[in-house]
Structures are given as structure tokens and as C-alpha cells.
């Protein structure tokens, strides 16, 4: 008896949905820019977890390649996002996301 007969595929889906929901709540309720970025990372990881589980249950390696690409894009997104955050912090002296309510820098 292998482990996949023990763990149904739905459990991974539920776990991924819960993680995604926690990340979404974090994006919506926190005002700190860095924590909002971290919550976005959490949401990306929830999707990664669902993709890896579907790759394992469907015996298809393409999903793992997609996870690889998502990791790349997440790394790029974080580096650019934190660079933008440092520029904003230098100008506004604040980490509040509600301080960014104007288009004019």
C-alpha cells in the first residue's frame, strides 16, 4: 500500500486553498508594504503546492516545470518589488501602503 492510497488528492487541494486564502487575507488586511509582498509570496506558494500535487497524482512532469517558472517569476517580482519599496521609502519615509494614494511621485 503506497502513500497515495492514504492521502487523497483533495487534501492537497484543501491545503493549497487554505494557504491561498491566508495569503489573500494578508494582502487585504495588512498595511505594511513588505508584509503585503510576503502574503503574495504565500499565495504563489499555495499555487505551487497544488501544481506539484497535481503533477504527482497525474504523473505529468510539466506541472513541475511550471512550478520552476513560477519560482523564477517570484524571485524577479520580489527583487523588483523590494527595489520599488526602497525608492518609495526614501521619498515618503513610510511603510504604509495607504501612503501611496497618488500617481505623482
Amino acid at each position: 500500500m503506497t502513500w497515495t492510497q492514504v492521502i487523497p488528492a483533495e487534501w492537497y487541494l484543501i491545503l493549497g486553498t487554505a494557504l491561498f486564502g491566508i495569503g489573500l487575507i494578508g494582502v487585504l488586511i495588512r498595511r505594511n508594504v513588505v508584509i503585503v509582498l510576503m502574503s503574495i509570496e504565500l499565495m504563489l506558494n499555495a499555487i505551487n503546492l497544488i501544481l506539484v500535487s497535481s503533477s504527482a497524482y497525474h504523473a505529468n512532469l510539466s506541472a513541475q516545470v511550471f512550478v520552476f517558472f513560477i519560482m523564477m517569476v517570484a524571485a524577479v517580482e520580489v527583487s523588483v518589488g523590494l527595489a520599488i519599496f526602497t525608492v518609495i521609502y526614501r521619498r515618503k519615509e513610510s511603510t504604509d501602503i495607504d501612503a501611496l494614494n497618488e500617481l505623482k511621485g
Binding site: 503506497t2 492510497q5 487523497p8 488528492a9 487541494l13 504527482a56 497524482y57 504523473a59 505529468n60 512532469l61
Partner: peptide, 8 residues
Amino acid sequence: LPRYLASV
């Protein structure tokens, strides 16, 4: 959803 892990 599938029940079993194929050998990947």
C-alpha cells in the same frame, strides 16, 4: 481527482 500516484 485521481486516486493513485502513477510512477513519476
